[in-house]
Design a protein around this nucleic acid. Sequence first.
DNA 1: CGTCATGCTTACCATGTGGTAAGCACTGAC
DNA 2: GTCAGTGCTTACCACATGGTAAGCATGACG
Lengths: 214, 214
Amino acid sequence: MVAQVETPDVKSGALAAALRLFAARGFDATPIQAVADEVGVTKQAVLHHFPTKEHLRRGVLEGILAHWNETLPRLLLAATASEDRFDAVFGELVRFFAEDRDRARVVLREALDRPDEVRALLTGPVRPWLSAVAQYIRAGQEGERHFPDVDAEVYVVHVLQLVLTAVASFPVTGALVEKDARRRYDRELARIAKASLFLPHATESEKPRRRGKR
Amino acid sequence: MVAQVETPDVKSGALAAALRLFAARGFDATPIQAVADEVGVTKQAVLHHFPTKEHLRRGVLEGILAHWNETLPRLLLAATASEDRFDAVFGELVRFFAEDRDRARVVLREALDRPDEVRALLTGPVRPWLSAVAQYIRAGQEGERHFPDVDAEVYVVHVLQLVLTAVASFPVTGALVEKDARRRYDRELARIAKASLFLPHATESEKPRRRGKR
DNA sequence: CGTCATGCTTACCATGTGGTAAGCACTGAC
DNA sequence: GTCAGTGCTTACCACATGGTAAGCATGACG
């Protein structure tokens, strides 16, 4: 048997290739052949593991969903202080999607290409996650640490979308600033999310860096 | 000549249909035939006005870009007070894209499907718009009306993206709240943008509505 | 009346696509 | 050794798609 040098497993290889290609070109514009080429096998080799292109799509998405199903509960329970919890969840959000932008891209594409499916996901299995986070925000409002006029659920959704879009399109938007683009974008992203949630004085855990420009 | 009842002009009709279809399914997944069907003519009738599918795509995009080329300068010059200017630009941003979500969708799709092209657009013809807005923000920082640690250019890009994504995917995310979804999403959108830009006391033009929930 | 351009129409085609059918090499179980 | 199952391979196909080619009706213009 001729073990392909770069192909320990066709199935996982196809999933990785599909994530890349679906993210870059979109599901419909990606022939199975392209996935197969990337893995270094024939189209039918891929079709053997995923009887249908649709199966391949599901596989890719499940890989992403699985991460949050096991990570989020842990994050929410681990941190105790309000701001620590924010940093933990927000940080993981940025980290996970920035680690591989293609994850953010496929999620955005799904929202555009299959709105009904994503809506079902959002109002079904994903809702508990969002509600849990929103619940913590409301608790922070009671404790006068957050702005009272924050609409918790909606805030969570907006921030989630902002992170997804910012990460997904960084290669495009990042070209607008010359140096340190990545750090500036990340920082402003976090700043916007925080400044619109935490009351000014509640941010005492943030080191009072007064050395703003001017 | 048999004038189609609903078709005053094939060319503009095709552009409108293409905007709808490209937004919904994506450029690659939309056959010219689908556009033709929507207009009520044959595929070749469409190909007569747009020699290539690519021409159709350009036409759709130019329609969107044209709006901002003529609107933005006017908006920026019209308002004088800092917050009025913000409201004018931000309001028009939301209004224009919410008026037809498909506009937001095609823009997002372009960023995903043709990053190089969009990057060229952003660093070329669009940059002056962004710089102009960023310039006003920096002026607001000098005048102590805005947070000093706002990264003006990056803030503008993030807010732009947030609006685009929020509008484009409202039919998906809006299902998360039961009633008044549209108003709540719009309001939180504006709140996040403003709360992360304006210093708390600088917001005196906003009526002090203390009647936040509880 | 003839000529020419415009705005289509019908015919057609090369290509790429998702998927089916069937066979074949190899492996382990018995 | 045989048998069955796994993981492919080659062959093939129906179909959709972007685009070309060429003709044809209509109206403006001379």
